[in-house]
Amino acid sequence: MGVPHPRQVADLQSDVADLLRDHVPSDEWQEPFTGPESAFRNKAKLAVGGTKGDPTFGILDTTSRGVALPECRLYEPPLTDALDALLPAVAGLGLTPFDVPTRQGELKHLIVTGSPDAQLMVRFVLRSPGQLPRVQEGIDVMRSVVPGVRVVSVNIQPEHKAVLEGDEEIVLTDDETLPMRLDDVTFHLRPRSFFQTNSTVAAALYRQAREWVAAADPASVLDLYCGVGGFALNAALAKGGPRRIDGVEIAPDAVRSARRSASELGLDAGFEIGDARVLSRLDHELVVVNPPRRGIGPDLCAAVESAAPAHVIYSSCNPTSLARDLAQLPGYRVTRARVFDMFPQTRHAEVMVLLERR
């Protein structure tokens, strides 16, 4: 914070290139992609504190008391505008904030996601289902002040531990998904599905992958850790083809969303529920991997080496695990690499590389 954004990006590029110097030739780096340095986040994760009559929405301090953040500059302008109207309406529902020191109360967090078309998904994280009727009755109130409210759900988190949400999700609206339109693809985000929190940079990430797929023009593409289908659907729409498209994702809700988007686009793509780390079949010409921070690990690296697809696109949110995985893919060389400033004002980066079989 306080460092000029161009300098932040230059330092980030330098650090990532240094970390990956044994795997990525210096002349293969493309210019970093940058979006807005503030007002970029499409999701607000708000810890709730205070009292029933005067709740706070923001963070908890070192004593676990609520601190309101009414003018946070993280969020996209439409989401900020929506929160200005939505938070007073939520405060008026009469839900008692959960007090961490005494372990009393109900409302732990409020999670609000905004789409590029100014629609909202509003999730209440409650300790128990006892206050469900209050939330249900408040939907019309919320929509009266923010007409874009599309999905409202309650997540039940009964445990006292540092976990944002629990396993049970109850959708209270007829609509179960929030359409997230990035360029010419509309994804369908369900309450518990992962989606990049920086829409501008996510769209650029998918455009870059589409460009690399078009240049390689494979007959088949497999998207591992495919989530709601971001890379797979863009690969299907890349120039060239036709090509067989498959995706594997462990979260059933995300697979349902990917299938819906493919159907709306008229694409013949196959999405399966499964663990990418224990694949039984890998017979595609190009494989995309977009793993969590831990990376793909030795077993999947070995499977890729054995199957020997002509190209691999690896999108990573952790350059350290990316370097570790690249070291376990000796049969490949990096021919393109790019840093995406997905998380401005931080030391984190999204890095995508294109690998070609030696």
Rank of each mutant, 00 (worst) to 15 (best):
V141E: 09
I313F: 05
R127K: 14
P4M: 15
R277I: 00
L222A: 14
C72I: 02
V228I: 15
A310V: 01
L120S: 01
R190L: 11
F231Q: 11
R277N: 04
V151C: 00
P78M: 08
V135F: 07
L233Q: 01
R256E: 10
Q136T: 08
M342T: 07
P116M: 13
G66P: 03
V24D: 02
A203E: 10
V135P: 03
L69Y: 03
G58R: 04
G130T: 01
L19S: 03
F57H: 14
R192T: 09
E211Y: 04
A349T: 08
R358W: 07
P116N: 12
Q157H: 10
N290L: 15
E305Y: 00
V351L: 09
T197V: 11
T197R: 10
L110V: 13
Q131D: 10
L224S: 04
D99T: 15
L182G: 07
R192L: 11
A209I: 13
L95M: 14
G58Q: 14
L164V: 01
R357N: 09
L265H: 04
E350T: 08
T113G: 00
A17M: 14
A303W: 02
V145M: 12
G230N: 13
L322F: 12
D54H: 12
R294L: 08
Q30S: 04
Q328F: 06
L224W: 06
E169V: 07
S64F: 15
P242Q: 12
T200N: 12
L74G: 00
T34A: 08
C72Y: 00
T197W: 03
G49F: 11
L120V: 05
V154N: 01
Y332P: 01
Q208K: 12
S38M: 04
G274H: 05
D183R: 08
P218W: 13
T80M: 10
V67L: 05
I139C: 11
D253F: 05
T346D: 10
D268R: 12
D268V: 04
V185A: 14
P319N: 15
T63G: 08
D325I: 06
D81F: 15
R150E: 08
S153A: 11
H188N: 07
C226Q: 02
V112R: 03
D283E: 15
A238K: 13
N42M: 15
E76W: 10
E71Q: 06
Q345S: 11
D184Y: 03
L222E: 04
H160T: 02
T34N: 08
D217V: 12
P158E: 12
P129N: 13
V255W: 05
L60T: 05
G274T: 04
E137K: 15
P191W: 02
E31R: 14
V24Q: 01
A82R: 07
E137Y: 09
A327C: 00
A349K: 13
V145W: 06
V304P: 06
S315T: 13
G230I: 15
T51P: 01
V221E: 09
T346N: 14
Q104A: 15
F33D: 00
T173I: 14
E165F: 09
D84C: 06
T63K: 15
L354E: 06
Q119P: 00
R65E: 14
T200R: 15
Q131V: 03
F187D: 06
V163P: 00
H109I: 10
I250P: 02
